[in-house]
Amino acid sequence: MAVTASEGPFSRALPWLVPLALIILWQVSSSLGWLPPNILPAPTAVLEAAWTKLQDGSLIDNLGVSFARAMSGLIIGGAIGFSLGLLNGLSKTGEMLLDPTLQMIRNIPHLALIPLVIIWFGIGESARLFLVALGVFFPIYLNTLHGVRNVDPQLIEMGRIYGMNNRTLFLKVILPGALPSIFVGLRFALGVMWLTLIVAETIAANSGIGHMAMAAREFMQTDIVVLSIVIYAILGKLADSATRALERKFLAWNPAYAKV
């Protein structure tokens, strides 16, 4: 490549330059009155809102509620997707029995089910869990299945020649071989997870970050609305970083994931 970024503090600061400039521009525009606060509050106003909400404890409460919902949905949907992905990847019968149906259902956007889900579950916790679980199910299922099916058959033959039983073959060859693909699924799932949660909490909830934003909207508290958006962004980023850290730990053998 012709363009090479030099090492050192400058190249490390480079990615932050544009976001920083945007925030400064935003602050200046607000301070000069170009941006009325009812359209977009100043960054300082958002920080202030964060401080107030932190002090009265409601920010932490809502954050905890949203986080718990996200994780429970991820664990339920992820576990089912992972198990079915393994089952259908390992068993031809399972695949022929279940995969065509799942591939068909996959084409329904899960958010289109919201009216039906509200009829089934009301607007309680189970409705939100169901939606998140359904949303994360497919990326995890598809990528687990893909990963298991694409394990190098030469490695499987090697394992058999060396006398591995099914359990060892699964633990030492198939699962590690499918792991990179499973991680791809997990990353997709995390994106779907936040998106679903935002929608679910905005439409029907009496707690959580989405609810905080909707309640603020009624009183035109744009600072809190923007705060909620920023928090969602931070949560998304944190989830992504956590996945990257896991990838670096579990896929260290793969040059594509090695720490650069």
Partner: peptide, 14 residues
């Protein structure tokens, strides 16, 4: 046909 996710030693142990 080495296991890419296993060290040299673990591959030999197979």
């Amino acid at each position: 046909r080495l296991l890419p996710w296993a060290s040299v030693k673990d591959n030999v142990a197979v």
